[in-house]
Nucleic acid binder design. Structure first.
Lengths: 100, 100
DNA sequence: GGATTACTTGAACATCTATTCAAGTATATG
DNA sequence: CATATACTTGAATAGATGTTCAAGTAATCC
């Protein structure tokens, strides 16, 4: 790989990890593992205001980790990448070993 | 899983991702993929001051991602977890697809 | 078409974090 | 034993980030 695109890759990786490095966003991702959900639903699952949840959903969407689908006046969010569940599983495994 | 330890798990996961969410620390991890290295070596590879590098190595060590071995007046650092290379590979794969 | 629902957005504020700089420790060397 | 090397550490500062609050938009309902 060219040194230049290696730099870019590392930058993208650190920003991907940055997106995952937040408890609220992780909860959101977990809540979407099984099925798409509306903003209000997600907000009540993660125990945050709708506004805070929407802000975080925007971050996730800008980083292509979730996508949304409008239906009437409701927005349904779902996961938008097949690597992410695997990444969460690996990280979860690592951290579960630390705990027990 | 109990809801309480699930909360703890998510917290640990977000802080693990937080540690990975930094360009300097990622470079350090990559530089250690093949072999252990001294602080000065690492600093010159990542292009940072020895002090900054040492601070980041401390963060990595406190989170059990690297370990150190003293020999004389030199400190050799190496990776301290088998999940991490896999995590980096997965994240790298995800981001490489985004680039190309 | 006015009110309501379901969100989104922007600004503000507080908190966290990465680097620098100066000073400190530990080991080796002459 | 004094000096040099190889780091580590603490405080300070500057920049990034998460939440709140108030205001805005878009679709639906009566």
């Amino acid at each position: 790989m060219k040194p230049d695109s290696e730099k870019l890759l590392l930058l993208r990786m650190s920003s991907l990890f940055g997106v995952l490095a937040d408890n609220t966003r992780l909860k959101i991702m977990y809540s979407l593992l099984d099925s798409e959900k509306r903003v209000g639903e997600i907000a009540s699952i993660v125990g945050m205001s709708v506004s805070a949840t929407s802000h975080q959903l925007k971050v996730l969407r800008e980083n292509r980790l979730v996508k949304k689908r409008r239906q009437g006046r409701e927005n349904y969010y779902s996961l938008d990448d097949y690597h992410i569940p695997a990444l969460l599983a690996l990280a979860g495994e690592h951290c579960r070993e630390e705990i027990s």
